[in-house]
Write a protein that binds this DNA or RNA. Structure first.
Lengths: 246, 246
DNA sequence: CGTTGTGGTTGACGTGGATCAACGGTCTTT
DNA sequence: AAAGACCGTTGATCCACGTCAACCACAACG
């Protein structure tokens, strides 16, 4: 596991500030004024680069920092003693990792890079300190946490009340939206996760996920080729969620 | 629906401060020093009393305040267009309601009293303001939100990876712990919610919940009489979660 | 260029929990 | 104290998804 050694690479020299960052619009500083943004210099202490499959933090690790994804993508998961895995989320650039650690001072899940990725390391102490100085930062941070809670409730809805095809439709619509928010196509994209990981997230087996893909394909709502997805009929996907029984 | 009118009752005259409150230990101020506690005067603007089945807030309501439960209990839920309900949580005294509203400035779920209850109304603007003054309040609030996220991840685990009996066992253990934290018995307690509400929370039908109760009873892990539960063998319940297949 | 491994699809079959239905117990209301 | 609504239990049946298994696509590597 000497993977983790090579992961602790600090970006050489130059640390660009939040105000220069091109993914600001879907990150922590979203909606802050010019002057407030200037106050964020020094919020990001270092960067950290991870290769595919490397772990940013593990359940039980002491909590010190939160992480803003600069590039790449992650999954977070929890393991039960008997080996069952539950993927609790997939994260994209601009999204914040590590919020689970604040309450207990240690992380409660694992965060794993799904591709070569880079994160901004934000020391939690620094965040708290700057929150006192930079009007607006505190509120932004609260919003980020609140949205995470709302997202989680959406996943509960999905896991507790929807059938397999609905879950996949909801998942694809969600991915689509998030790609759009980042300036990518919402109708054609490449999923970084395997069918098994999607299944773990959606509370299904990989076979059921595969079959659900095929059925959405048959119904001409999407087109699939391995991890590449075309959304052919987004309203159709939405409608499917509203009509549970077939 | 003039229910809601009668609910807007402000406690007559005297508003006791957080420092006087007997459920402080499991509420927002937990872990704050004496001097910090004094700074919290004025945090709670008013109280609000609700009768059973009354709504504290609904999805779509503009967000203005969060609520600390003083007495009673609540459930939060979301509704899909087609009428499917998902209960996203059950809340007890000391726990905070309304965190879902910060991100979008409006509530994303409904909060309903499961019995006659009383909440402290904490204007969010006031909370932000006091966070700048009272060292420690900000951190406490972050902890509360973080714990909510961790709890939600636990529910995802439950919904995504556990079978019916395991879900119920996990639910009962969780309730037990929370009663203990409030100074009540963890081995004998009264559930305020119906089988249907438990089912909605656990992603099961009420019949399956009922059968799971019966099976745990048969296995001598618990004793049940309607809503009254005796935990006879807590380690046994825990063990059951670790051994998924029967 | 074949070999090996990982990931994805599809089919056959089994099963846990949903659905439908009947009934009994318990609170609420008057 | 009786009536009625609500709630909980249990049985019979059904079906969506899990399980097991075979096979195929594609990437990595010698």
């Amino acid at each position: 596991m000497q993977e983790d050694e090579t992961a602790r690479i600090v970006a050489p020299g130059f640390i660009s500030s939040c105000s220069q960052c091109n993914i600001m619009e879907c990150c922590l500083p979203f909606g802050m004024s010019e002057s407030e943004l200037d106050g964020l210099d020094g919020l990001v202490g270092t960067y950290r680069r991870l290769k595919r499959h490397q772990t940013l933090y593990r359940a039980g690790d002491p909590f010190q920092a939160i992480y803003a994804i600069r590039s790449g993508s992650f999954k977070t998961d929890i393991w039960l003693e008997d080996g069952r895995e539950q993927v609790t989320g997939f994260q994209m650039p601009g999204e914040i990792l590590g919020l689970d650690g604040i309450g207990t001072e240690e992380h409660s899940c694992n965060a794993i890079a799904m591709q070569d990725s880079e994160v901004c390391v934000i020391a939690y102490a620094k965040l708290e300190e700057l929150s006192y100085k930079v009007k607006g930062l505190q509120h932004q941070f609260h919003k980020v946490m609140s949205r995470e809670i709302v997202r989680d409730h959406g996943v509960m809805m999905l896991l507790g009340s929807m059938r397999a095809e609905e879950r996949l439709a909801a998942f694809l619509l969600n991915m689509s939206q998030r790609y759009v928010a980042r300036g990518f196509s919402g109708t054609e994209f490449h999923l970084r996760m395997t069918r098994e990981e999607i299944g773990s997230y959606l509370g299904l087996t990989l076979e059921t996920v595969s079959r659900a893909f095929s059925r959405l394909h048959d119904e001409k709502l999407i087109s699939v080729r391995q991890k590449h997805v075309w959304v052919l009929n987004a309203p159709g996907l939405k409608k499917m969620i509203r009509q549970p029984s077939r």
